[in-house]
Protein backbone atom coordinates (compact mmCIF):
# COMPACT_ATOMS: atom_id res chain seq x y z
CA UNK A 1 0.00 0.00 0.00
CA UNK A 2 1.58 3.25 -1.13
CA UNK A 3 1.07 6.64 0.48
CA UNK A 4 -1.60 9.08 -0.71
CA UNK A 5 0.92 11.14 -2.68
CA UNK A 6 1.94 8.15 -4.79
CA UNK A 7 -1.69 7.12 -5.25
CA UNK A 8 -2.51 10.66 -6.40
CA UNK A 9 0.35 10.64 -8.92
CA UNK A 10 -0.80 7.27 -10.30
CA UNK A 11 -4.31 8.66 -10.86
CA UNK A 12 -2.84 11.72 -12.57
CA UNK A 13 -0.75 9.55 -14.88
CA UNK A 14 -4.04 7.92 -15.94
CA UNK A 15 -5.44 11.36 -16.72
CA UNK A 16 -7.58 11.67 -13.58
CA UNK A 17 -7.41 14.54 -11.06
CA UNK A 18 -8.54 13.27 -7.68
CA UNK A 19 -9.05 14.91 -4.29
CA UNK A 20 -9.62 13.37 -0.88
CA UNK A 21 -12.92 13.61 0.99
CA UNK A 22 -13.40 12.92 4.67
CA UNK A 23 -16.19 10.36 5.14
CA UNK A 24 -17.24 11.94 8.45
CA UNK A 25 -17.16 15.66 7.65
CA UNK A 26 -17.48 15.55 3.87
CA UNK A 27 -14.61 18.03 3.65
CA UNK A 28 -12.68 17.83 0.37
CA UNK A 29 -8.95 18.42 0.63
CA UNK A 30 -5.87 18.74 -1.55
CA UNK A 31 -2.85 18.24 -1.84
CA UNK A 32 -2.89 14.60 -0.73
CA UNK A 33 -2.43 13.93 2.98
CA UNK A 34 -2.61 10.88 5.24
CA UNK A 35 -5.30 12.57 7.34
CA UNK A 36 -7.86 15.36 7.05
CA UNK A 37 -6.24 18.71 7.87
CA UNK A 38 -7.40 20.19 11.14
CA UNK A 39 -8.92 17.00 12.52
CA UNK A 40 -6.38 14.24 11.86
CA UNK A 41 -9.21 11.96 10.70
CA UNK A 42 -7.71 9.17 8.56
CA UNK A 43 -11.04 7.89 7.23
CA UNK A 44 -11.23 9.42 3.77
CA UNK A 45 -11.92 8.41 0.18
CA UNK A 46 -10.72 9.52 -3.25
CA UNK A 47 -13.19 11.54 -5.30
CA UNK A 48 -12.91 12.91 -8.82
CA UNK A 49 -12.26 16.66 -8.90
CA UNK A 50 -15.32 18.41 -10.32
CA UNK A 51 -15.11 20.44 -13.51
CA UNK A 52 -15.60 23.27 -14.38
CA UNK A 53 -13.96 25.25 -11.59
CA UNK A 54 -13.69 28.98 -10.84
CA UNK A 55 -10.72 31.33 -11.19
CA UNK A 56 -10.02 32.82 -7.72
CA UNK A 57 -7.09 34.95 -8.85
CA UNK A 58 -4.87 35.22 -11.89
CA UNK A 59 -1.48 36.64 -12.80
CA UNK A 60 -0.04 37.02 -16.30
CA UNK A 61 3.64 36.46 -16.95
CA UNK A 62 4.88 38.08 -20.14
CA UNK A 63 7.36 36.23 -22.27
CA UNK A 64 10.14 37.80 -24.27
CA UNK A 65 9.47 35.07 -26.82
CA UNK A 66 5.98 36.41 -27.31
CA UNK A 67 3.34 34.20 -25.69
CA UNK A 68 2.26 35.34 -22.23
CA UNK A 69 1.20 32.75 -19.64
CA UNK A 70 -1.81 33.06 -17.33
CA UNK A 71 -1.29 31.37 -13.96
CA UNK A 72 -4.36 31.11 -11.75
CA UNK A 73 -5.53 29.92 -8.39
CA UNK A 74 -8.63 27.90 -9.21
CA UNK A 75 -11.36 26.98 -6.71
CA UNK A 76 -13.25 23.73 -7.18
CA UNK A 77 -16.97 23.44 -6.45
CA UNK A 78 -17.28 21.69 -3.11
CA UNK A 79 -13.73 22.52 -1.97
CA UNK A 80 -10.10 22.34 -3.04
CA UNK A 81 -7.88 24.94 -4.69
CA UNK A 82 -5.03 24.51 -7.17
CA UNK A 83 -2.48 26.67 -8.95
CA UNK A 84 -2.21 26.09 -12.66
CA UNK A 85 -1.91 27.55 -16.14
CA UNK A 86 -5.07 28.70 -17.88
CA UNK A 87 -5.03 28.00 -21.61
CA UNK A 88 -7.41 28.23 -24.57
CA UNK A 89 -7.70 32.03 -24.69
CA UNK A 90 -5.41 35.04 -24.59
CA UNK A 91 -3.64 35.14 -21.21
CA UNK A 92 -4.71 38.76 -20.72
CA UNK A 93 -8.38 37.75 -21.13
CA UNK A 94 -8.40 35.32 -18.21
CA UNK A 95 -10.48 36.93 -15.46
CA UNK A 96 -11.33 36.29 -11.83
CA UNK A 97 -14.67 34.48 -11.57
CA UNK A 98 -14.30 32.77 -14.97
CA UNK A 99 -15.42 29.15 -15.13
CA UNK A 100 -12.67 26.96 -16.55
CA UNK A 101 -12.57 23.28 -17.55
CA UNK A 102 -10.07 21.10 -15.76
CA UNK A 103 -7.86 18.75 -17.75
CA UNK A 104 -4.70 16.72 -17.35
CA UNK A 105 -2.10 17.62 -19.94
CA UNK A 106 -0.08 14.50 -20.70
CA UNK A 107 1.86 15.88 -23.66
CA UNK A 108 4.92 16.94 -21.62
CA UNK A 109 7.54 15.01 -19.66
CA UNK A 110 5.22 14.74 -16.67
CA UNK A 111 1.42 14.96 -16.54
CA UNK A 112 0.11 18.25 -15.19
CA UNK A 113 -3.22 19.78 -14.38
CA UNK A 114 -4.24 22.74 -16.49
CA UNK A 115 -7.36 24.79 -17.02
CA UNK A 116 -9.14 25.52 -20.31
CA UNK A 117 -11.03 28.80 -20.63
CA UNK A 118 -12.23 28.21 -24.21
CA UNK A 119 -15.77 27.35 -23.16
CA UNK A 120 -15.98 30.29 -20.74
CA UNK A 121 -14.97 32.71 -23.45
CA UNK A 122 -17.71 31.56 -25.84
Amino acid sequence: MTGPEQQWREALSEGRLVFQRSRASGTVFFPPRITEPGTGDGDWEWVEAPSPATVYSVTVIPSRAGRATAVALVDFDGGGRMMGNVVGIDAESVAIGMRVDVFVDRTGDAPRVQFDATRAAR
Binding site: S57, T59, I61, T69, V71, L73, G84, N85, I96
Partner: peptide, 18 residues
Protein backbone atom coordinates in the same frame (compact mmCIF):
# COMPACT_ATOMS: atom_id res chain seq x y z
CA UNK B 1 5.07 23.48 -9.74
CA UNK B 2 2.66 22.11 -12.36
CA UNK B 3 2.03 25.78 -13.21
CA UNK B 4 4.47 28.10 -14.95
CA UNK B 5 4.24 30.65 -12.12
CA UNK B 6 7.43 32.42 -11.09
CA UNK B 7 8.46 31.68 -7.49
CA UNK B 8 7.91 33.66 -5.35
CA UNK B 9 6.68 36.72 -7.25
CA UNK B 10 3.62 35.07 -8.82
CA UNK B 11 2.34 34.10 -5.35
CA UNK B 12 2.37 37.75 -4.30
CA UNK B 13 0.95 38.78 -7.68
CA UNK B 14 -2.02 36.47 -7.12
CA UNK B 15 -2.65 38.15 -3.76
CA UNK B 16 -2.38 41.59 -5.36
CA UNK B 17 -4.75 40.68 -8.20
CA UNK B 18 -7.35 39.35 -5.77
Amino acid sequence: AMSDGLFPVSGYALAAAR
